[in-house]
Amino acid sequence: MTTYRSAASTGLLPWQVRGRRFRRVWPGRRGLAPDEVYAFLDRVAGDLAAVQQALAESRRETARIKAALRDWQSAQARARGYDR
């Protein structure tokens, strides 16, 4: 069985997923080697989870920055007397 994930592993790139080929099972049987397929799917799932987490963090940071900007703009408007 091939291990795909390591601490130094970088995320999968689209061309790696599209181009991945699996060995066939032994002669007389149809299909692909299940251990290779499941190991690869586990790596893809892990990379997708990491992307989803990074996206969620990015959205939280965007919301935090937008709120800070709105607060700063409101404070500037009050300081200049525009809120009257």
Rank of each mutant, 00 (worst) to 15 (best):
residue 55 L to Q: 14
residue 23 R to A: 02
residue 22 F to R: 00
residue 64 R to F: 10
residue 42 D to M: 08
residue 52 Q to E: 15
residue 11 G to M: 09
residue 6 S to T: 13
residue 51 V to A: 14
residue 83 D to Q: 14
residue 81 G to D: 12
residue 10 T to L: 04
residue 48 L to S: 00
residue 35 D to E: 03
residue 63 A to T: 14
residue 56 A to G: 08
residue 75 A to R: 12
residue 50 A to G: 04
residue 78 R to Q: 05
residue 67 A to S: 14
residue 74 S to W: 08
residue 84 R to K: 12
residue 24 R to D: 04
residue 53 Q to S: 11
residue 8 A to K: 12
residue 28 G to P: 07
residue 31 G to Y: 00
residue 64 R to A: 15
residue 8 A to P: 08
residue 26 W to P: 00
residue 67 A to Y: 09
residue 71 D to G: 12
residue 70 R to H: 11
residue 72 W to A: 15
residue 38 Y to T: 00
residue 7 A to F: 08
residue 24 R to W: 00
residue 45 A to D: 13
residue 82 Y to W: 15
residue 28 G to C: 05
residue 54 A to T: 00
residue 66 K to N: 13
residue 81 G to S: 12
residue 28 G to Y: 01
residue 7 A to L: 11
residue 10 T to R: 11
residue 3 T to G: 08
residue 30 R to V: 10
residue 14 P to R: 07
residue 6 S to M: 06
residue 60 R to C: 04
residue 60 R to M: 06
residue 9 S to W: 06
residue 74 S to P: 01
residue 77 A to K: 07
residue 79 A to V: 04
residue 73 Q to R: 14
residue 75 A to W: 04
residue 18 R to C: 05
residue 39 A to W: 03
residue 50 A to D: 03
residue 45 A to S: 11
residue 68 A to F: 08
residue 38 Y to I: 01
residue 24 R to V: 01
residue 4 Y to E: 15
residue 11 G to S: 14
residue 4 Y to H: 15
residue 69 L to V: 14
residue 17 V to Y: 02
residue 19 G to P: 04
residue 37 V to F: 06
residue 43 R to I: 07
residue 77 A to D: 07
residue 15 W to P: 05
residue 31 G to T: 01
residue 50 A to H: 01
residue 25 V to L: 03
residue 61 E to A: 15
residue 52 Q to C: 10
residue 16 Q to F: 04
residue 79 A to D: 07
residue 7 A to I: 05
residue 62 T to H: 13
residue 46 G to P: 01
residue 73 Q to E: 08
residue 8 A to G: 11
residue 5 R to L: 14
residue 58 S to V: 09
residue 45 A to L: 09
residue 42 D to T: 12
residue 73 Q to F: 00
residue 32 L to C: 03
residue 8 A to H: 12
residue 24 R to L: 05
residue 50 A to E: 04
residue 7 A to D: 06
residue 19 G to E: 03
residue 2 T to R: 04
residue 54 A to W: 12
residue 67 A to I: 09
residue 67 A to M: 13
residue 5 R to D: 11
residue 61 E to Q: 14
residue 57 E to F: 06
residue 40 F to E: 01
residue 30 R to M: 07
residue 17 V to S: 07
residue 8 A to S: 15
residue 11 G to W: 10
residue 66 K to R: 15
residue 30 R to D: 09
residue 5 R to N: 13
residue 63 A to C: 07
residue 59 R to I: 00
residue 24 R to N: 03
residue 47 D to P: 02
residue 16 Q to A: 02
residue 51 V to Q: 10
residue 83 D to R: 14
residue 6 S to C: 09
residue 20 R to M: 01
residue 16 Q to I: 02
residue 29 R to F: 07
residue 53 Q to W: 07
residue 5 R to S: 12
residue 17 V to C: 06
residue 52 Q to S: 09
residue 30 R to Y: 06
residue 42 D to P: 04
residue 26 W to D: 01
residue 56 A to K: 13
residue 22 F to S: 01
